[in-house]
């Protein structure tokens, strides 16, 4: 990075400028700005309602932005979508849906397969390989409600893996999974890092942050701090993130909302 000028390929995987997102005029993210360097494993942490999932959704153009911009590999998300993989929260889908694990994974290949075409043997094989990487290739044909929570999470990871992206967003992949799955995911994140991938993970377990991640983004509506774990993951910053939400801002918003309702 120092020796070469920053051309298109060297652009930062993710660069967020002054991002503000609001739901029904209530701000969820406020002037968020940070950069993610290539090949880093980044934890996004913060209390409930801090806007962690919203940050990911705003970056993926899934939620309208009130202001600010998000650059993915130096361009818009739309332009570089093929280089981005996404693992949504496990609870976001109906696991009773009539579909098998391998069919879920194959969804990551739909863009590659193309409109109107069917998933062929070649793509099935790719999906199976991804299931093997997360250690549940033997469950490929099982209907997804017959998988344990950890196995469901692994299937979601495999679906993102087959996209063979360079930048990954994972929304709480460690939530309510068994120990075996947790260590499998950690191993996988390590391998992905070796392959030069950049990964952002919404994470809840503060104890494991130093062991699992390179960088950390402390979020509570705004960015409290971001940077390498050993510099930023301090008692002081955690206090700022978790101790007391931005009470003044919160109260002001509530007052605005109350007045609007009474009108």
């Amino acid at each position: 990075m120092v020796t070469k000028p920053a051309d298109k390929d060297e652009a930062l995987p993710l660069s967020v400028h002054d991002l503000t997102v609001a739901y029904h005029r209530r701000p969820v993210l406020w002037d968020v700005a940070f950069n993610v360097r290539p090949g880093r494993l980044v934890a996004i942490i913060g209390p409930n309602g801090a806007g962690k999932s919203t940050l990911i959704k705003a970056a993926l153009d899934l939620t309208p932005r009130a202001s600010g911009s998000v650059q993915v590999f130096g361009g818009t998300y739309r332009a570089n979508r093929h280089r981005v993989g996404y693992v949504p929260q496990r609870e976001s889908v109906d696991w009773d849906f009539p579909i098998s694990a391998i069919e879920v994974v194959a969804m990551g290949l739909y863009r590659e397969v193309g409109w109107f075409r069917r998933v062929g043997a070649k793509h099935r094989l790719k999906a199976l390989e991804a299931l093997d990487r997360v250690g549940i290739a033997d469950l490929a044909d099982r209907q997804i409600s017959q998988l344990s929570g950890g196995q469901q999470q692994r299937a979601f990871l495999a679906r993102a893996l087959v996209q063979n992206a360079d930048l990954y967003f994972m929304d709480e992949p460690f939530a309510a999974v068994d120990a075996a799955t947790e260590s499998a995911i950690v191993d996988l994140l390590g391998v992905m890092k070796q392959e030069g991938k950049t990964t952002l993970v919404v994470h809840h377990d503060l104890h494991t942050v130093p062991a699992y991640f390179d960088d950390v983004l402390l979020l509570n509506m705004r960015v409290v701090a971001s940077g390498p774990v050993n510099e930023v993951f301090t008692q002081d910053n955690l206090q700022k993130t978790y101790g007391g939400r931005l009470t003044l801002l919160d109260e002001a918003t509530q007052a605005v909302l109350r007045r609007e309702r009474s009108l």
Partner: peptide, 12 residues
């Protein structure tokens, strides 16, 4: 039907 959010992220 299964995961509209993911479909949107894929650009559908």
């Amino acid at each position: 039907c299964f995961d509209a959010t993911y479909a949107a992220a894929l650009g559908y």
